[in-house]
Structure formats: C-alpha cells, structure tokens
C-alpha cells in the first residue's frame, strides 16, 4: 500500500516505451511495485495494459526504458537468468491458457516439470496447490470438464506452482460471471495475504479494483494519468480517463430525474460526494443546523472502499434565497469531496 512507510520496491519500470508501427502502446511509463501489495492497473481498451504486462514478463521487448527486478536491471540478464526471472513472475490469463491434453494436476505441475522437478515431488506440490484453490478431488479431470471459474482456479494454482514473488493477472476475471469473479478475486486476496505474493492486476473494470486492489494506476493512451491509493482515487478522481472508468460503478442521476432539471427553480439539485470521517456524520442534519437549508436525498448511497466509508448522493436542496443557497453550497464544499449544482427543479 502506498501508505505503508517501509514498503520495499520489488519491481521498477523506468520510462518504458513500446510502439507497434505508429501506435505508441506504452509511451514512457515509470512505476514501482512494492512487495506485498495488490497493484491495480486500469485503462480503457487499447490503453496499453497488456503490452505493459508483456514487457514485464519478457514476452515483449521494450523499445527503450528499463525494468529492475529486485534492483537488478533485466537488460543485463543472460537468457537463462531471464528464464529464472520469468519463473519468479507468474501470470494468469483471461482465457486461462490451460493445456487441454493434460489432466488438471499435470497442468498445475507443468512449471515444476519445466524447472526439472521429479514427477513425484511435482505431483505432490500440485495436489497441495489444488487444495489451496479449492479444487481438491479434481486432480485427474481434463480442463474441458471444468467451468470457467474452476479453470481459472487451475490457472492460479499453476501460476503459484513455481513459488513466484509476483502474480500478473491480465483480465483474469473478465470471462467470468459476476459471482465467480468475486470468488476468484477473494481467492487472489487470500493468496496475497497468506502467501505474501505481490499481485499486479490488469483490468478495465473498476469493480475488480474496488474489490481487492490497494493501489491504483490509471493508464490512458500508453501513459500513466493518475496513481494513488484506491480509496483516494475513488473519492477524488482527477483525470478524465479515471472519471470515465468510474462512471460504471458510481451512481449517476437517473434519466427521468435528469430530464426534469431546469435552469431555475426553488430546489437545487446537487451531486455531493463525501468520504472518510465526514461520511460517518449525519450530514443532512448538520447542514440544516448550520445553514438552515433543508436537503433531501433523491438518488445515491453509501459504499465502503478499502474499509473507508464513501458516499455519493444527489440532493435536492431548498435554501430559500440565493444568499442562503450560496452558504449551503459552501458548507457542502467544505464537508465533501465534490459538490456540484446540476440544475434546479
């Protein structure tokens, strides 16, 4: 977490660039991944997320810039050393990428086989991992017989087999239904907490970030446009790209209500966001006590992000006259993260 004072850098990217023809897929990205965190990287389709992650695990060669893994420049590694590094950085995929010709247990054991471990030892390790991900008893099945969620569990067990420091997830839950997605995300959280595996989570869904990420990096057109603790970015998004991505999970004014908005009226409709300590106060009562303005909630609600209470409301506020309205708005602005008059009814 960014707030952890003694966070230890595990992976550092410095000014990474990668273009395809004229497309600057990754255009000067510098970032640090700290040991033990869950770092979310979000961006719209084509923002360069997959290219970035492929540079990290060596499947793509950056045009320029450097990658430091445990303070060692990966450019200076021999072929064998970079293979070793790849084993420390495991990956799970949207399409699972399991071998259809192998049983579940042999899929999980594959990284160990590649590393030259004996059959008995790797089967034993794989069986343990299948227990960990909740697939005990399915060892001898083939992937074709599993559901998407189960396949991803196999993918996770396989990624863990070589005992990696970092787990890269490229849209690992995007092919799954919401319920299964949550189960997979909780499994990743558990792995992060219990095994201390650092996780880099790539997604275009804020819902995924919201569920488990500690820290968030927003990527747009190959560049980082915003980064910080998830709760801070959710409460006070700065970049336009971030706001657009947040649109999907924060409440917006229902069209029927939006259609009633007028330039003038006796009630002001206000979008009001608040977080932290302020979110735990009876703010509508306080507003009335301090300013005399009466507000009612017409839409929205409270949420908990990373243990922090955050509220997003649409208020209809009756202040009486213009001066009182200004006073009430100033009060709200001081109290919350956002207070914006959308119109009047």
């Amino acid at each position: 977490m960014s707030t952890r004072p003694k966070a230890q850098p595990l992976l550092e990217l410095k000014n990474l660039r990668r273009s395809f023809g004229g497309t600057k897929a990754v255009n000067g990205v510098s970032l640090t991944v700290y040991k033990g965190e869950i770092l979310g990287i979000i961006g719209r389709s084509g923002a360069g997320k997959s290219t970035l992650i492929r540079c990290i695990n060596g499947l793509e060669k950056p045009d320029s810039g450097s990658i430091f893994y445990k303070s060692r420049d990966s450019a200076g590694l021999t072929l064998e050393e970079s293979r070793q590094m790849r084993r420390r950085i495991a990956m799970i995929f949207q399409q699972f990428n399991l071998l259809s010709s192998r049983t579940i247990i042999d899929n999980v054991a594959l990284p160990l086989k590649l590393a030259g471990m004996s059959k008995i030892a790797r089967r034993q390790k794989a069986a343990e991992l299948l227990q960990t991900v909740g697939l005990g008893g399915k060892e001898q099945h083939y992937p074709a017989f599993l559901s998407g969620g189960q396949k991803q569990r196999v993918g996770i067990a396989r990624a863990l087999a070589a005992g990696p420091d970092i787990l890269l997830s490229d849209e690992a839950s995007s092919a799954l239904d919401p319920e299964t997605t949550q189960a997979i995300l909780q499994l990743l959280r558990e792995i992060n907490r219990k095994m201390g595996v650092t996780i880099i989570l790539i997604t275009h869904e804020m819902e995924v970030i919201r569920a488990i990420a500690d820290r968030l990096i927003v990527l747009d057109k190959g560049k980082i446009v915003e980064q910080g603790a998830v709760k801070d970015i959710f409460a006070r998004p700065q970049a336009a790209a971030t706001r657009a991505l947040l649109q999907t999970i924060i409440p917006s004014l229902p069209p029927a209500l939006a259609a009633q908005l007028r330039p003038q009226g006796h009630e002001a409709v206000i979008e009001f966001h608040l977080s932290g300590a302020a979110a735990n106060t009876p703010f509508l009562q306080d507003l009335q006590r301090d300013t005399g303005a009466i507000a009612r909630i017409i839409h929205g609600g409270m949420d908990t992000i990373q243990g922090e209470r955050q509220g997003r409301f649409f208020l209809a506020l009756n202040a009486g006259d213009k001066a009182k309205l200004a006073q009430a708005l100033a009060w709200l602005a001081a109290k919350g993260d956002k207070s914006e008059v959308l119109g009047y009814v």
Binding site: L59, R83, Q84, R87, F93, N97, L110, L114, A115
Partner: peptide, 23 residues
Amino acid sequence: NLIQAVLSMGATRLQTLREVVLP
C-alpha cells in the same frame, strides 16, 4: 496464447515444442 503462456513460465523453446505443441 498457450505457447506464450508456457514461454512466460520460463520454458525453453524446445520444451515448448515438446510439452505444448506436440501434445
């Protein structure tokens, strides 16, 4: 993608042929 996945596990190219492409 499967081949890439196995390469990303640190497989050599020969291992990739033997462990993935053939089976």
